[in-house]
Design a protein around this nucleic acid. Sequence first.
DNA 1: TTAATACCTACAGTCGCTGTAGCTTCAAGC
DNA 2: GCTTGAAGCTACAGCGACTGTAGGTATTAA
Lengths: 144, 144
Amino acid sequence: MVQHYSIGQMAAAGHCKVQTLRYYEQIGLLPVPARNEGNQRIYTQKQMDRLGFIRHSRELGFSLDQVREILALTDDPSHSCDEVDYIARKHLQEVESRIKRLRSMQQELKRMINRCDGKQISDCRIVETLSNHALCIAKQHSAQ
Amino acid sequence: MVQHYSIGQMAAAGHCKVQTLRYYEQIGLLPVPARNEGNQRIYTQKQMDRLGFIRHSRELGFSLDQVREILALTDDPSHSCDEVDYIARKHLQEVESRIKRLRSMQQELKRMINRCDGKQISDCRIVETLSNHALCIAKQHSAQ
DNA sequence: TTAATACCTACAGTCGCTGTAGCTTCAAGC
DNA sequence: GCTTGAAGCTACAGCGACTGTAGGTATTAA
């Protein structure tokens, strides 16, 4: 007995919306599934696993293009995994640089908030800091 | 003698593109500037300062809607800065939760990469990890 | 049988820009 | 004065990764 899933069951398992599945199908990330007599999508276990792969990759912050590439590479199990490794390392670097920028923002925001004494706009250190970049310590936080 | 700026000078000062300025104008974040005889935009110092405020806020990760709100609040200098403070604190929280999620991704990515021995896809621990969420330690990294 | 829920297609909207096409205007050098 | 190249103009499409909506059909449980 082969397992089959409705789009709703897939969405629940993948922690995503039904629309997301239709979107993945539309952009060719998920294969076009079979339909039942009433024209509703029926997914196989294999498709469910593929969705699991996609969703987990997304949770780790890979782009859909990266996911697409990794999935293409996994089609040949005897292929070297150098390229997968490369994609993952590059993504890790990207994640680390995002953390760096966010930490710089965090520090500046904290400093800004702490300097504010909660009186009026004209004396507000938050407004003042936002008005004047020169009041910043680090300037690393450009380009989110 | 009053200072005036072309759109190109504004863009250079704001570290953004000319199109970005036209976009800010279109969404009502920057006022409609005067034009010269040749229909080109002429900006005042005040508008330049406003752009500085916007760009610095963006660098600190505020959304354009938040910037719009803060700018509206600063229109009344005698107004309490509680609301500005609130927006900034809420944004700080958001930044901190993004950092948390990214750090979780970072750890998982590192672990995944280190487990890979660089042989072939069929043995690749990266592919294996992506296939199976259960292989993750923390599951905090959902929803970028 | 009925009512609620799930599914279908097609398309618009989100955010914050960025790019393009096809023009006009300006500024500098000759 | 003329030419040339840079800078400016409008209008609109596109990005990524969904999300929402309208208006319909199918399935399922009571």
